[in-house]
């Protein structure tokens, strides 16, 4: 039996090569694809540069003093001048953020597995997860600072509380969203609970988990920054948020902007990396990662 003569035996899309561009219509489409591939990167970059240019002109033309609104160039100079100080703070904030994210991933996934394996565990723990999620971290943080002495641990706990919920709720949803026919199939083939988890539930939950990870990455950074703000004091845990506070007390506006820029860069990097991870893991099979031609 051959499949060639089946009505719709389309298998993937072969990579586009010169030899395959056989007519004008095809060539036009190939060109459109190339333009889109470039524009996808070029347009956002151009928009950023345009914004910086307008900002710069606005400051220069209106002769705004740098202690009110520094120009992008002035911020860059500050960044270079303060690179040792801000670099050290960046590493502290980055470390807290990544540790919080790691603990959120481990804790969120383990709790999600526990929830789907045991209805009882879900009934017991889910209210706490929700309470932690809906109570603003700013209001919990002062209590945590009373009870927890270690400066790093305090901030880490705050960042973790903010970051873990999207992982937990998304992964739980994913573990429960198994195709019911596949579930029946596993039952018929006599799969045990462990095989069902490893070979069916975890792969089904992967896209959901990755969606949660993208949200949690941003939230971990927010949690770390908010926690530092609430601490308010310098010394041991002086991350980027503390530098912003400190600079504002000294009316060092360019340094505030420089620290802010670093925070934004960290946020964008986390977003890009989690997006890349998601793409790499799902591109072969999941609808969200498949590019369709219009």
């Amino acid at each position: 039996m051959s499949v060639q003569n089946e009505t719709d035996s389309g298998i993937g899309h072969p990579p586009l090569t010169e030899a395959m561009v056989w007519d004008a219509e095809e060539a036009r489409r190939a060109r459109a694809r190339q333009i889109e591939a470039v524009a996808r990167w070029l347009v956002p970059v151009l928009v950023v540069f345009l914004t910086l240019f307008i900002w710069d002109r606005f400051v220069v033309v209106n002769e705004i003093p740098h202690f009110i609104l520094p120009s992008p160039g002035r911020i860059w100079q500050q960044l270079v001048a303060d690179r040792a100080l801000l670099g050290a703070s960046l590493i502290i904030t980055l470390r807290i953020t990544l540790m919080a994210l790691a603990v959120a991933v481990v804790g969120g996934v383990i709790l999600a597995i526990l929830f789907t394996q045991s209805r009882f565990a879900e009934l017991v723990f889910f209210p706490y997860a929700v309470i932690l999620q809906v109570t603003p971290i700013v209001s919990i943080a002062p209590l945590i600072f009373i009870y927890v002495q270690d400066a790093t641990a305090r901030v880490l706990i705050c960042a973790w509380i903010v970051a873990f919920f999207p992982i937990l709720s998304n992964t739980t949803l994913g573990l429960k969203s198994v195709d019911h026919n596949l579930r029946d199939l596993f039952t018929i083939y006599g799969a045990n609970r462990w095989q069902r988890l490893i070979h069916l539930q975890l792969p089904s939950a992967l896209p959901y988990f990755l969606g949660g990870l993208r949200i949690a990455g941003g939230l971990a950074l927010i949690g770390a920054i908010v926690a530092e703000y609430v601490v308010g004091s310098g010394g041991a845990g002086s991350g980027l948020a503390f530098r912003i506070l400190e600079a504002s007390y000294r009316l060092n506006i360019p340094r505030m902007f420089a620290a802010l820029t670093l925070i934004a860069v960290v946020g964008v990097t986390i977003f890009a990396l989690t997006g890349l991870l998601s793409h790499l893991l799902l591109r072969k099979w999941h609808e969200s990662a498949i590019r369709r031609e219009a």
Binding site: M1, S2, V3, D8, G10, I11, G12, W285
Partner: peptide, 19 residues
């Protein structure tokens, strides 16, 4: 036997409904 000897490494989304 089912005529898919050439496609062991394909992913389901790459196949038609019949395949």
């Amino acid at each position: 036997l089912v005529g898919l000897a050439k496609f062991p490494d394909a992913y389901p989304r790459e196949l038609s409904g019949g395949m």
